[in-house]
Design a protein around this nucleic acid. Structure first.
Lengths: 128, 128
DNA sequence: TTATTTGTATTATATCATATATAACAAATA
DNA sequence: TATTTGTTATATATGATATAATACAAATAA
């Protein structure tokens, strides 16, 4: 899976790494059990510091997407469910997006169709 | 419309002000043409600095939600459409949310129902 | 006129997040 | 033994965030 970062973006580098791995998991470019690049290797590829990659990995580990040990490096977790914390986060972030869309005249069906399209773009069968 | 901020949150104060005004617009607690509190007054109510409120207002003005002049203070704009910049932002942010939901086993219909519920929670008729 | 209120601008300061650089450590492997 | 893994530690630099204290221009109200 190919990762890229934009140093000029206002989005922190570790957050960009985090987000792209989430997108990779949804799209099937990363699968449960698969090993990710070592922090030093990915840092070298992206021209960022080792600790920046580690910060992105650690965030994903705290969320349950990745696991690490000193034998096999960092791997995708076997499975991850939607716990209460995630449900709450999702609802909060979705509410703000919906509010902005609604006041700009975007109705519910239009937003729902965007969801349908995005789900199909990710593909239907991959991942845990 | 009542605003509150949480100084302990990781979300910047000016961003909290920004987000709550968006939610207020969607819910009808704020209407087109309505005057907002003066920066000094709101700063006093929230116990934050005047410039922090101004930063939140300025962000909303840059997005087209508010307008200011030195006569009548800061008011809600008459109308605001969904331009290309907004559409792009919406799609990007929605994609990340959908990716996270999908890999946690949340299917499209569940997400779409959340949208239906949130739209109804905001109410159907208000605002431009 | 004078005083007040509005958003805005300026200058200074403090703190935290972000990011880097460098080095070292423990655990496992080749 | 040497290498690779994630991890930890220390130090440093920069930008974002937030505050403080003034001041200004424009409009309004007394």
């Amino acid at each position: 899976m190919l990762l890229r970062v934009d140093a000029a973006s206002t989005v922190p580098l570790y957050q960009q790494i985090h987000d792209q791995i989430i997108l990779g998991l949804a799209g099937g470019g990363l699968r449960p059990g698969e090993t990710l690049p070592a922090v030093r290797q990915l840092a070298d590829e992206l021209n960022v510091n080792m600790l920046t990659v580690a910060k992105g990995y650690n965030l994903l580990k705290a969320e349950g997407y990745l696991v690490s040990d000193r034998r096999q490096g960092t791997r995708v977790a076997a499975d991850f469910q939607a716990d209460a914390v995630f449900q709450q986060e999702l609802a909060t972030q979705l509410r703000l997006l919906i509010a902005a869309a609604k006041i700009r005249g975007i109705a519910a069906p239009e937003l729902q169709q965007m969801i349908t399209a995005q789900y199909q773009a990710f593909g239907g069968k991959q991942h845990a």
